[in-house]
């Protein structure tokens, strides 16, 4: 508990939110990079299907996504059984791990789309030139693609992190409201309002507002200076 402007606020939901967002960002950059690379170089018509699937969380109500994840992560369901087989003891519903997995789905387009656009902007002939200089696939990726899509990575990381911080529906459906485990800032604000604790809600909301504004300014700043396409 800390006191801000004379209001007692628990910082635990803030730390949890940052932790979940950080993990989500790391995981999404790791799996989003090969996925975005694959999609950027894809020429077949099935690319449309993949693009639509990746963009789905943008248009789907988060509660729908959360609902399906809740069903899939059912403690007696196949996914949990499958994880048990590999020695995973916990459960995915109403847990931090589950929240992170859910956030990965929820924020997928925010990582994959900027990366894909950045990868698409790398001219094929540079990779061809590198190949004629005896650079293999991984060498080409690390020496040509990565440096030329730095800004794409910066935008992807920032947007993923910020979007995860702001999620509500998925958390509500999948995580519930367990202090220290699944109570994120957005849920916390909802709770305060429900219990008519407007002062706490005000402080937390103002913090979120400022945070979001700063993040967006950062992203548009990167965009303006380097011209990266987003969304």
């Amino acid at each position: 508990m800390v006191t801000i402007f004379g209001v007692e606020v628990s910082l635990q939901p803030i730390w949890l939110t940052l932790e979940v967002a950080a993990w989500t960002t790391v995981i999404l950059l790791l799996i989003g990079t090969p996925l975005a690379w694959w999609m950027a170089r894809m020429q077949s018509a099935s690319k449309i299907v993949l693009e639509a699937l990746v963009a789905l969380p943008l248009v789907l109500p988060p509660t729908v996504l959360g609902f399906y994840l809740l069903i899939i992560f059912n403690p007696n369901g196949y996914v949990t059984e499958f994880l048990r087989f590999f020695g995973y003891e916990g459960q995915l519903t109403f847990s931090k791990t589950g929240l992170i997995v859910g956030s990965v789905f929820y924020s997928l387009p925010f990582a994959v789309q900027p990366l894909m656009h950045a990868f698409e902007a790398v001219p094929q002939k540079l990779l061809d030139a590198a190949a004629t200089m005896r650079a293999n696939v991984l060498d080409r990726f690390f020496t040509i693609v990565l440096p030329l899509s730095q800004r794409g990575f910066l935008v992807a990381a920032t947007l993923t992190f910020a979007h995860t911080v702001g999620e509500f529906g998925v958390v509500l459906m999948l995580g519930g409201n367990i202090p220290g485990e699944t109570r994120m800032v957005s849920i916390d604000i909802f709770d305060h309002v429900e219990s008519l604790e407007y002062d706490q809600a005000h402080v937390l909301s103002a913090m979120m507002l400022i945070f979001s504004l700063l993040v967006l300014m950062l992203v548009y700043g990167i965009n303006r200076r380097f011209g990266v396409k987003v969304g």
């Binding site: 002939k125 030139a129 190949a131 004629t132 005896r134 030329l148």
Partner: peptide
């Protein structure tokens, strides 16, 4: 045989220099 093992030098129409 992948390009990188063919010992080919290639000059492209518009040079294809690495801009970074």
């Amino acid at each position: 045989l992948p390009t990188q093992k063919r010992h080919i030098g290639f000059v492209f129409q518009d040079a294809a220099l690495f801009p970074h």
